[in-house]
């Protein structure tokens, strides 16, 4: 209701206006607005007097927008089997609409900075895998370094994306967060289109980019997940 009020009032809506438009008492509205800002659904404008919609409101898109192309929830049981076998966080992402959407989050591994994966595709295994199969998405303008190891040279990124296309596996070592590494393998539908990925995310040193056993396990489960989704 508060988000709807902000959307109606536009950028810079003040707390008082939002409160009166939504009919929520001021003290309650101010507290709720602060919580929505803390969680990134709203942002405050530069003089702090008003609000605008935050990028995280997009996460609500599944509820108000068009349904996702594939239903990944049918594969949840298979994903849980994999989680029981490895110590890393196992995440499934959908690439519907050419963007990253985590459709199965590991309940035991909190993934900090989830929105950064969506906004900085060049910095994560999940994002690079998407970029490597959607040539039109490659970021224009300078690549922002998130850590010292983020790939910021366009040429280096292009080489990395072609390597991912050839090997069918994407690595990430300290690129989006220091101390975090990941492996991601694509989920391909019957026409070999990449519709998403399954990723193992863990601490650098535990998840190794040359861990063939883990890569093989991910590939096996990627096939099983696709089989479940397509069934």
């Amino acid at each position: 209701m508060l988000l709807e009020a902000v959307a109606q009032l536009g950028s810079g809506a003040t707390a008082r206006d939002i409160s009166s438009l939504s009919g929520i008492p001021p003290a309650t509205a101010y507290r709720l607005l602060n919580l929505l800002v803390a969680d990134g659904f709203l942002v405050r404008v530069s003089d702090l007097s008003g609000f605008a919609l935050g990028r995280r409101t997009r996460e609500l898109a599944g509820e108000v927008g068009a349904p996702a192309a594939e239903d990944f929830s049918t594969a949840h049981a298979v994903v849980e089997q994999l989680r029981a076998r490895v110590r890393f966080g196992i995440f499934v992402a959908s690439y519907a609409d050419d963007r990253v959407r985590l459709v199965d989050r590991d309940p035991d591994h909190e993934l900090a900075g989830e929105s950064v994966i969506r906004t900085h595709l060049h910095a994560s295994a999940i994002g690079k895998l998407l970029l490597s199969h959607r040539p039109g998405l490659e970021p224009r303008g300078p690549l922002r370094p998130l850590t010292g190891r983020t790939i910021v040279e366009p040429d280096t990124l292009a080489a990395e994306l072609s390597r991912i296309r050839e090997s069918g596996i994407a690595h990430e070592v300290d690129e989006i967060r220091v101390g975090r590494s990941a492996l991601a393998v694509p989920l391909r539908d019957s026409r070999m289109t990449v519709i998403g990925c399954i990723a193992a995310i863990g601490r650098t040193g535990r998840v190794n980019s040359d861990d063939e056993e883990l890569a093989g396990l991910l590939r096996t489960y990627a096939e099983r997940i696709v089989a479940e989704i397509m069934a």
Partner: peptide
């Protein structure tokens, strides 16, 4: 630590130079 472009829903905020 003000709101960055990356925090704002694209098209929902108005940016102006300070």
């Amino acid at each position: 630590d003000c709101a960055e472009s990356a925090d704002v829903l694209p098209g929902a905020g108005v940016f102006a130079p300070d």
